[in-house]
Design a protein around this nucleic acid. Sequence first.
RNA 1: GCGAUAGUAGCUCAGCUGGUUAGAGCGCCGGUCUGUGGAAUCGGAGGUCGAGGGUUCAAGCCCCUCCUAUCGCCCCA
Length: 470
Amino acid sequence: MQARTQPARGMRDFLPADVRRREYVIGLIKEVYERYGFEPLETPAVENIETLMGKYGEEGNQLIFKILKRGEHERTGEADLALRYDLTVPLARVVAEYRDKLPKFFKRYQIQPVWRADRPARGRFREFYQCDVDVLGSRSMVVEAELCAAASEALQRLGFNDFTIRLNHRQVLAGVLDAAGISPDKHGDALVALDKLDKIGREGVAKEFSERGIAPEAGHGLLDFFKKLGELEHAAQIVAGEPTENGSALSETAALNRATLGRLVEFVGDHEAGARGIDELSYIVTFVEASSTGAKIKIDPGLARGLSYYTGAIMEINVPDLAGSLGGGGRYDNLVGMFLGQNVPACGFALGLERIILVMTEREMFPRNLAEAPAEVMVTIWNEASIADSLKLASDLRDEGLKVDLYPDADKIGKQFKYASSRNIPLVAIVGDEERERGDVSLKDMRTGEQMLMPRERVAQTVREKLSEA
RNA sequence: GCGAUAGUAGCUCAGCUGGUUAGAGCGCCGGUCUGUGGAAUCGGAGGUCGAGGGUUCAAGCCCCUCCUAUCGCCCCA
C-alpha cells in the first residue's frame, strides 16, 4: 500500500534551499528587466487548445500537454484545453485581446512555468520556468538590440561572462538556402542536417544531405559557404591575438561580424528577403556595439531555431559547458495576427531558468549564505510552565521585525541548542527560571559561544547588533 | 519516439564465477554531561538491495516488463 512519492515524470519538488536559489535568480533577472522598462505579466497555466495548436510546428504540437474534456465527454478522449507550451503565444493572445488597453509599445516580462511532454534529460524537464522579455509594436532593430542587452545584462548580473549570443535571421537563412540552390521544400531538412556541422563534420552533413534528398551540388555549395565562414573566424582570432582581452575581444567580434555579413551579401546576392535580413542583422550588431553586449554577440549563419513562428532575427545564448542553450528568442511579426487578424510586430527573448540554475549550481556561482539560516534568533522553551513566556518573547521579537523561530517542545536545553546549531540559527534566547525571576533573558551567540544576560527589553536591540557584527 | 548505461542505509559507495542472519565511511538518534550545540568517547536505530514477475535447491548478482536518472539520436529553455 506504499504509495509512490516521487513527483510525476519530468516534474520536480523544490525544497527550501532550491526555492531560495530559484528566487535569488528570478529576483536578479526581474531587477534587470525592470530597469529596461519592462512590465510584469502573468497568464493562466491553461489555454484553450486552439490557442496553442499550430503555432509551434509539427513537433511542437505533439509535445503539448492536452487536457481531456471533463464530465461525460471524458470518454471520447477529446481535449479542449492544454497547458501552455511557452509564454510567447499566450502573450500574443493577450495583446490581441487587450490591444486598446496596452501601450503602443508593449514591453513585458513574464516568469512562469511552461509544460512540454518531452523526454526529460539533463537540464530538460516537463515543467520548467521561462523568463521571457518581449517588445510588441515596433519593427525597429533597436528592439532586438535592447533585448540582447537586457538578457546579456541579466546573465552578467548572475555571474556569467563566458556566454555567446548567436544571431541569425530567418530570411537570411532562406536566402542562403535559395542561393545554394536548395528547393524550398527541402529547407527544413537542410537546416536539421546543417545544425550538426560541428558534431558530425562536413562529410557527415554531406551524407545526411543526400539521405534527405538534397541535390549534391546544392549541398556542396552550402557546405563550401560554411567552410569559408569557418576560415573567417580562424583568421579573425589570429589577427586579434589575445581573444580573452576585453578591448580586443570587442573589436575582434565586431570585425568578425562585419566579415560574416560581407560574405553573406556576396553569397545571397540579390535575393530580396535575404538582403533585407542581412541589413537587419547589420543594424542589430551596430546598435549592440554601443553597449558592452557587443562583445557577446556573434552572427552565426548556421543558427536555426525550431519554433515555426519566427519571421526575422533569431538568437540563442550558449555557454561552453551546456549542450543545449541557456535561452533563445527572435522576431515573430505574424503571431499576433493569427489571433487579431491584423499584424503587430513583435520580438522576444526567453531565458531558461532551469538551465541557468543547473550551470550556476555546477559552477558554484550562488552566494554562500543563500540557503542557510531560516531565522535570525531562536527562542527556547525552558519547561511546560514557561511556554507562555517563550511565546511572548518570540512575539515581541517578531514585532521588532526580526525573523524568529520558536522551538516547539520543552526538550532538554542541550537538544534545543543542538537543533539551533544544525539549522544555522546564529542566536538563541533562553528564559530559564533564574532569568524569569529577574525579568532577564540570556542570549547566546552560536557562532562564538558567547552568552550574555540582559533585561528582556534589550534583547531585540542586542540581536540586531550581533547580526550586524558578522 | 529509438538505442545505451546505471539504480544497494539519509549521503558516497563495497558486495568475488548466483551460496547462510547485506557491509563501510560520513550523517542521524541516545548516553558519558541533573542550565548549554560544535570536540572526544561509548552505544543504537535505519535496507522487502528502484517496483513487479520469472529461472533456480538457492537471486543484490541471471532473464522479462515497468519506473527513475544519465549519455547518444531527435528536438528544445
